[in-house]
Design a protein around this nucleic acid. Sequence first.
DNA 1: ATGAAAGCGCTAACAA
DNA 2: TTGTTAGCGCTTTCAT
Lengths: 348, 348
Amino acid sequence: MTTMKEIAEQTGVSISTVSLVLNGRDEGRVNPTLASLVRNKATELGYKINPLARSLRTNKTRILGFISEEVATTPYAGGIILGAQDAASAYGYMLFTVSTDGKASEENEIATLKRYGVDGFFYSKMSNRIAQVPKSLDDYPVVMVDATDHDNKIPSVEPDEFMIAYDATNRLIKAGCERIAYVGCSESMIAQDGRLAGYQAALHDAGRVFDPSLVCNVLNNGPALRAVSKLFDDTHPDGFFCFNDARAWYVYECAARRGLTVGKDISVVGVDNHRVFAETLEPQLTTVELPHYEMGYWSACKLISMIEGKDVDTSVWPDTRAPLPPLNAPIPAKIHCALLEKGSVVVH
Amino acid sequence: MTTMKEIAEQTGVSISTVSLVLNGRDEGRVNPTLASLVRNKATELGYKINPLARSLRTNKTRILGFISEEVATTPYAGGIILGAQDAASAYGYMLFTVSTDGKASEENEIATLKRYGVDGFFYSKMSNRIAQVPKSLDDYPVVMVDATDHDNKIPSVEPDEFMIAYDATNRLIKAGCERIAYVGCSESMIAQDGRLAGYQAALHDAGRVFDPSLVCNVLNNGPALRAVSKLFDDTHPDGFFCFNDARAWYVYECAARRGLTVGKDISVVGVDNHRVFAETLEPQLTTVELPHYEMGYWSACKLISMIEGKDVDTSVWPDTRAPLPPLNAPIPAKIHCALLEKGSVVVH
DNA sequence: ATGAAAGCGCTAACAA
DNA sequence: TTGTTAGCGCTTTCAT
């Protein structure tokens, strides 16, 4: 690894000059000729700055700490981290990712991250909810991901659950479904509440009356399948908006048992938490992908802007923002929930 | 953050002495009284070493670089990383995780990791296969995860595909299944080859003759469902060993359409790549979990032992090593593929 | 047994 | 415009 010292020696200037030039702070301070001499030598030698040495003086490591609650084991956490990493990398930052279980382990991880001098923290939860950032993070820039601050004091990103459901339901409406059911989650959580509301609003905006008997909120367990069975037999829906893959599976199972074919006899739109169905085969199942990557991306940009005290270039938003396919096209295998488009992400 | 300097000042000794003591290299070199004085002051002040400053001198950062090929987006990558993190953390190491797509991006990430002075690398692939570690890693300690080296020169861990299949098939045999089908993957890959072999071996060891018509290798696509349908109708299996969740889904779909109930009319054992079914509801589906966490854990231990040039304490193996449930018990929702047990993991 | 001093690679006052 | 100097927090020789 080449050092500034070596460059200084080989070009006959002082280390300070090298430092100035290589940090782009030479404008009007260093002789342009010397500057380019230094620059050439640097590229010639393949010089790369030693960020650790620099951090010793500057107290800035360009390392970000990503704290997640076992989120690494959930299938979708990867998307968040990937997005955060991509954005971080674009700005020359690295990510330390740690996952915690208990409270104690969390404080441990935080302490470790602090020792390594991280410049700021991501604080991420496993599913969209209201959370409290530990006080040990008080003096640091923090951004919450897939969670929101109780006091709304910490910047945060979450999926726009309402719009996700609104879009999904609309898609079923446009596909010609007459009796659209919602197979949701019987635990109260932000995602459930928002999606139910979006489902209702879409129906309402389409001039339909909301029929509570078409709503079936279940858990992931035995009784769930019976409840969905009952939904089939009682109300004979021809369209289903499903809270997630697991709920969609109940619908598939019930349909198959009744000789109904998804994509022909009934339509199904599900929110993608696991992606099995999307990866499997059913072009008849429309999967609305949660904007995990985008949340990660946004949060990294936000965090870095806080750290550097300046706006980051949000035009760097990733390519994955595919436009929503036209509604009259055949139902696609996947709708990408585009960032900053139709409010599919909410930032605070 | 307290520094050694502060401790030195407050105890009236020199920084060198503090360094010696706090690094446990004081045996017979520092007056025990002084030593404990220093130690007390350190805990009193809550001293924590600054690893970055130390690394400037020692050239050891205690940071490990985890390189994965977009693995962060695959559902199971999280398990590997989590295991690696837990082990690393136990030895006072941190992980930089990066994922790459193309060749160029990989070299970039590697360069960045080097600049941050990582002590060694994990090189991980998305699915068990033979791979080549980039030459840019040649001078560093490297461990491969879920992949093996072409020349068998790099230490590596991979799931024991054979034993996974052998166990799974055995389970169906012990459950009383007479006609056990294998729904596999029609692409040739280590997992497919190993699992097919394990399936065959289990049948053979049980004194059964292998019937090729019970094997149905498919991709994740439309024709797959038809192929599995044909399997049902042609051979009427009463037990299914499935390559993964997606393949298990075909079996579920076909069963439901025929009025067959999993767990009653047929038995299904699937290898868990996505976990939807395990998380959903079917106690009748046995999911063999891949030992991702354990692979991560092992690889971190191995890597650290290479770095430090000494054996690490493998008694630290994680708790998740649940014993396999007794074979005559009702088929459980999940079998944990225990590390170093029945060879469920292969290390090289 | 202890401390002074040098130095890891870099930045930032301050001189010149 | 350039170089000298000091120092970030720590380790490590080398005197004492």
